[in-house]
Amino acid sequence: MYEHFFQCPYCWEDISMLMDPSVPQQSYVEDCEVCCNPIEVVSSFLNNELISFEAREIGQ
């Protein structure tokens, strides 16, 4: 598993997320662990390294 730290697009708190680098392209929704708002997460891995990551508000 790969742990990535980022800011919530709603409350701007620093949070972390565990991601599976064996899945090259990922897109899913996960709630913020601080404010509980839904975050759309889009990420890409290449050779088990994170090459792109975006966390955005739902509907934005």
Rank of each mutant, 00 (worst) to 15 (best):
M1S: 06
M1F: 14
Y2F: 15
E3R: 14
F5V: 03
F6H: 05
Q7V: 04
C8P: 03
C8A: 02
C8V: 11
Y10S: 04
Y10H: 09
C11D: 11
C11E: 11
W12S: 07
W12L: 13
W12P: 00
E13L: 01
E13V: 00
D14F: 03
S16P: 02
S16N: 12
S16G: 10
S16Y: 00
S16V: 09
M17P: 01
L18Y: 12
L18G: 09
L18N: 04
M19R: 09
M19E: 12
P21Q: 01
P21K: 05
S22C: 10
P24T: 07
Q25A: 05
Q25I: 03
Y28F: 15
Y28G: 00
Y28M: 12
V29N: 04
V29A: 09
E30Q: 12
E30W: 01
D31I: 04
D31H: 06
C32M: 09
E33L: 02
C35R: 09
N37R: 07
N37M: 09
N37K: 14
N37T: 00
P38K: 08
E40N: 01
V41I: 15
S43H: 05
S44N: 10
S44Y: 09
F45Y: 11
L46S: 14
N47I: 04
N48I: 00
N48P: 00
E49R: 07
E49T: 13
E49M: 10
E49S: 13
L50F: 10
L50N: 10
I51G: 06
I51R: 13
F53T: 08
E54A: 11
A55Y: 03
A55C: 08
R56K: 15
E57N: 09
E57M: 15
I58Q: 15
I58W: 01
G59M: 05
Q60G: 11
Q60H: 14
Q60P: 01
